[in-house]
Amino acid sequence: MTVDAHDFTAYVVVGAPNHFPVEDYLRADEQMTLDRAFAELREGMRMVPPRPHEPNFHKMLSADLDVARGS
């Protein structure tokens, strides 16, 4: 199953901080957690193309994730 970035972001917004659905095909240690969700979001940032007119774009995304994780 393929999940795009918008779908996954919505999944995190709805499930955070501790209301992620329990998936019956995953072991307990594989279930989604807030830490795992943010790790996936960070990994997904690698897929975002650079923006030549915004050289610090990826740093801004990373900082935004840090702020969101701290909320």
Rank of each mutant, 00 (worst) to 15 (best):
D4N: 15
P49L: 11
G44M: 06
P55M: 00
H19A: 11
H6D: 15
H19W: 06
L34T: 14
A63L: 12
N56S: 09
H58N: 06
V13M: 14
V48A: 08
V3I: 14
G44H: 10
V3K: 11
H58Y: 11
F20I: 09
E54L: 07
V14G: 07
R42Y: 04
H53P: 05
M1L: 11
H53A: 13
H58G: 06
F38T: 05
Y25N: 15
Y11V: 05
A63P: 00
H53F: 10
D66F: 01
G15Q: 05
R27P: 07
S62F: 12
V14N: 14
L34C: 10
A28T: 12
D66N: 05
D24L: 04
K59R: 12
F38D: 09
M1G: 15
D4Q: 12
G44V: 03
F20V: 08
V3R: 13
K59W: 13
M47G: 06
M45G: 05
P49D: 13
F38G: 03
R42G: 12
V12D: 10
L61I: 01
V67R: 11
L34N: 06
T33E: 04
E30V: 00
H53N: 07
T2V: 10
T33G: 01
V48S: 03
E30A: 00
P52H: 05
P49I: 04
M45H: 08
L61A: 01
Y11T: 13
M45E: 13
V12R: 01
L26F: 03
R46D: 15
E43M: 05
D4M: 11
P52W: 03
